[in-house]
Amino acid sequence: MMFGLAALAIVVAAIMVLYRGIKGPRVYDRLLAINSMGTKTVILIALIGYMYERPHFLDIALVYALINFIGTIAFLKYRETGRLD
């Protein structure tokens, strides 16, 4: 119950941020929204793991946090230098 309400609040927050991602005038606004949604997804995965009493979802959350950060950095690097090597 408690975890369900918290997950609902985070989904609402993610939808609000998604609006900024769709509308955002510049590519950086969109990137900010995507990064923010990614970290919210980490929290959401952890909460869902507790909702269904499967704390092993936390491994997925940890890996998702890593991939989210690396994805943002990689996209920024690609945008600044034009290549990824």
Partner: peptide, 22 residues
Amino acid sequence: LLFIGCFFILVASVGVLRFPDF
């Protein structure tokens, strides 16, 4: 703590929507 955290996250989302520039 869940209540406080969700409040902070919601306010942050409202801020991302409301503020005028990047």
